[in-house]
Computed example of a mutant assay.
Amino acid sequence: MLLVILKLSFLGDSTLPAVGGGLDEFLAPLSATSEVRFDVRVAVFEAVLNALLHAGSEGEVAATLELTVDGDWIVATVTDNGPGFDPGAVPAPPALAAVCVVPTAGASS
């Protein structure tokens, strides 16, 4: 079951503190370890920063952060008003990059 816990919409880079506050509020009731909380914060800030840096001109970026809990998983979705790109047109990295998926406490491997 997917449960939406937090949804933030923001314009431009002045909202990073709001994202931090929203994350604190989102993470507070979860029984996640400090390491999981740190990993979630880093992953979310990187995704939001990517949207702010690449979605458009300064002050014109509109983005939404949605944090949900799906069973033992925390899911962060960032959408923005940027032009997008064709992932098939991006050259492959020299080595495969790992994707970071962070389970909440109690998740089975």
Rank of each mutant, 00 (worst) to 15 (best):
M1Q: 07
L3Q: 14
L3A: 13
L3S: 12
I5Y: 04
L6D: 05
F10S: 04
F10G: 10
D13I: 02
D13M: 02
D13S: 05
G20V: 02
G21A: 11
L23S: 07
L27S: 02
L30W: 03
S34K: 04
E35I: 12
V40F: 07
R41T: 15
V44M: 07
V48L: 11
A51K: 02
A51C: 10
A51M: 06
L53K: 12
L53E: 15
L53Y: 08
G56W: 03
S57Y: 05
E58G: 04
E60A: 07
E60I: 00
V61F: 01
V61A: 03
V61D: 00
L67W: 02
T68N: 14
V69L: 14
W73R: 12
V75K: 07
N81C: 14
N81T: 14
G82H: 10
F85D: 03
D86I: 07
D86L: 09
P87N: 03
G88C: 12
P91L: 14
P93M: 09
P93R: 08
A95C: 10
A95G: 08
A95M: 11
V99N: 02
C100A: 13
V101Y: 12
V102D: 04
P103S: 09
P103T: 10
G106P: 05
A107H: 10
A107L: 08
S108G: 12
S109T: 14
